[in-house]
Design a binder for these strands. Structure first.
Length: 270
DNA sequence: AGTCACCTGATT
DNA sequence: AATCAGGTGACT
């Protein structure tokens, strides 16, 4: 379930798996199509023998920096995941690509729907590719002042603005809807018609929702679940069509925006 | 701005 | 059988 918080949790999990400094001895794309428009066999050949230097997230991309100035860019799309397994021969059924270290340990890209993508770039290509992305909402760059300026220049409906990776990077359908709910912003409202006070609330809601969700996602991913239900991120509007708003009891509505479902409370979001 | 295509699995 | 799904890119 990969929006920014889940991708962040995957990256943290990989960093805890201590694969930094290891050499990738063998690469296999069980599903070559996930490299398109690149050629899977060429990625296999180019990556073999390289060392994993660094793992980072940018927007919803997982970036694996390798020795020799190359970077694997993994996009999980809807159902992708990256895991480290002790033995590549016992990987999951959904394995779409495997990066094997010495001793059979491996980094596995698993993806039920196979919509995810893995590409290989030079660092300069990567810079060019990521350049259009908006700021990271959990970085110092994302200030109220920045959001006020960006909002003034966009007539997009608020929900579509939040989901546009080139406006702000990392929000998806769930957390965009949740942030709008907590800010009391109607998802259809054009950004440039929001009052300053709403932009202030929206800015704070985005940061709070994402921070909470990162916390939950990291806990959910880490080991046997010894966390309480209360710690798990729970949605106020997403996937709650027809149910009473947890604040005002009016029925949560579902509308369609940009081909996707948007959930919101008509009482709280004006 | 909207629609479709990419895939598979879960749900109605 | 039909519809839905947390994403994105390529169309119109």
């Amino acid at each position: 379930m990969p929006e920014l918080p889940e991708v962040e949790a995957v990256c943290q999990k990989l960093n805890e798996a201590r694969i930094i400094g290891k050499r990738i001895v063998s690469v296999r794309f069980q599903r070559p199509g996930i490299a398109l428009p690149q050629v899977a066999s060429e990625i296999e050949a180019a990556v073999e023998g390289r060392i994993v230097r660094r793992i980072e997230r940018r927007a919803k991309n997982v970036l694996l920096y390798l020795s020799g100035g190359l970077v694997l860019r993994v996009h999980l799309r809807m159902t992708g995941n990256l895991i480290v397994v002790p033995d590549v021969r016992f990987g999951p059924a959904n394995a779409r690509a495997s990066f094997e270290f010495s001793g059979h340990q491996a980094l596995i890209f698993e993806d039920a729907r196979a919509l995810g993508r893995i590409h290989l770039h030079t660092t300069s290509e990567l810079r060019r590719l990521l350049a259009p992305l908006g700021p990271e909402p959990l970085s110092a760059e994302f200030t109220f002042e920045w959001l006020r300026e960006a909002a003034a220049q966009s007539r997009k409906p608020a929900k579509l603005f939040l989901m546009d990776q080139n406006s702000l990077a990392g929000l998806g359908n769930i957390y965009a809807a949740e942030a709008l709910f907590h800010a009391g912003v109607n998802p259809a409202k054009p950004m440039n018609r929001l009052r300053e006070a709403k932009i202030q609330r929206l800015h704070r809601s985005i940061v709070r929702v994402l921070n909470d969700a990162v916390q939950s996602a990291c806990k959910a991913y880490s080991g046997p679940a010894q966390f309480s239900e209360a710690e798990v991120f729970s949605c106020f509007v997403y996937d709650r069509e027809g149910d009473p708003c947890l604040v005002c009891r009016r029925k949560v509505r579902r509308i369609r925006q940009g081909g996707r479902s948007t959930y919101y409370c008509p009482g709280c979001q004006t």
